[in-house]
């Protein structure tokens, strides 16, 4: 599904990733861990074409990312749901419209959008807050909106960058359980986190990045 081969990324003279190679199977749930600044977020960015790599090759499904044309990027991104560390919610839209946006971009009818958004908001336990402004909600609630937006279009891949970043332990467990459920439905999920509690006892594969390289592969 996702294939990294000797991928390197440099920012000016600073090496963020150096010759990183790994494979992720379809339907797998993978954790990427490491200290802050290790390159976890950059690795996710490279997958969703939020940044370009300097060496190597990344293959995602049928796309070779070194050869992807600019005009293909929107369609490519439609296969990916992203849970951003800083949420990236639209302040002027309600919870419902923030989630619906992912479907509007995909050209679905308003009727279908309504059905799907209601279902996903119920799943993340936010149905009662559908008309609220996201900025008026708590960090955990905002995080769940972002997850709802990432999964509503049922993408093949979900990338989650520190999805429990500023949340309390109980809410964090809820979020991870939610992502596990989504994974059980067949989506490939990659979670970047610096917190070992999240993958402990999950039985999922964990890649540890340090000093721009994958230094260890283990089971959670």
């Amino acid at each position: 599904m996702i294939y990294f081969e000797n991928v390197s990324k440099f920012y000016d003279y600073h090496t963020v990733l150096k010759s990183v190679s790994f494979t992720i199977e379809k339907g797998e749930m993978l954790f990427i861990t490491g200290p802050s600044g290790a390159g976890k977020s950059t690795l996710l960015k490279l997958i969703y074409k939020g940044a370009d790599f300097d060496e190597g090759e990344i293959v995602v499904g049928n796309y070779k990312l070194s050869q992807i044309r600019t005009s293909e990027i929107p369609n490519y991104r439609k296969n990916i749901g992203i849970v951003f560390q800083d949420f990236k919610l639209l302040k002027n839209l309600s919870v419902y419209n923030n989630v619906a946006l992912a479907l509007r971009i995909r050209g679905l009818s308003e009727r279908e959008i309504k059905a799907r958004v209601s279902e996903v908001l119920k799943r993340v336990n936010l149905r009662h807050l559908a008309e609220s402004n996201p900025m008026a909600l708590s960090g955990g609630e905002q995080q769940r909106i972002v997850i709802a937006r990432a999964v509503v279009a049922e993408p093949q891949i979900i990338l989650a960058d520190e999805p429990t970043g500023n949340l309390d332990p109980n809410t964090s467990i809820d979020i991870i359980n939610l992502l596990k459920d989504i994974n059980l439905n067949g989506s490939t999920i990659i979670i970047a986190t610096h917190s070992p509690e999240l993958f402990k006892d999950t039985g999922k594969r964990v890649l540890k990045i340090d000093a721009s390289k994958i230094v260890r592969e283990m089971k959670g």
Partner: peptide
Amino acid sequence: IIKLLGAT
């Protein structure tokens, strides 16, 4: 943001 969500 909408670019990252796949907007054309």
